[in-house]
Amino acid sequence: MHTLHIVSKPPGNTRFRECLGMMGEQDALLLTGNAVTALADSTITLPAMVYALQEDVRARAIDPRQDISGQVTFDDMVSLTIRAQRVISW
């Protein structure tokens, strides 16, 4: 993984679209807060490497899509920020 992109805004926010548009092929996306609603939105095409913060997914009763890389805990989130060469929060 090159860059970990952490998004907290819902898919309707322009920031969400900007993030998807600028992601590199080696990058991963981490959905937190309102951004996890992207998993319930069938109109959103997500990149290959997607993680979502489990607590936020559960809180919103969102059924994870089949194509998602995985739900992560806060402990995993810490590991992801260390594994990534850099982290961008959107």
Binding site: T3, R15, G21, M22, M23, R86, S89, W90
Partner: peptide, 14 residues
Amino acid sequence: NTGTTLQQYQHVVF
């Protein structure tokens, strides 16, 4: 290409 530009900076901040 803003995506390419973004790759060039170690620290990208909003």
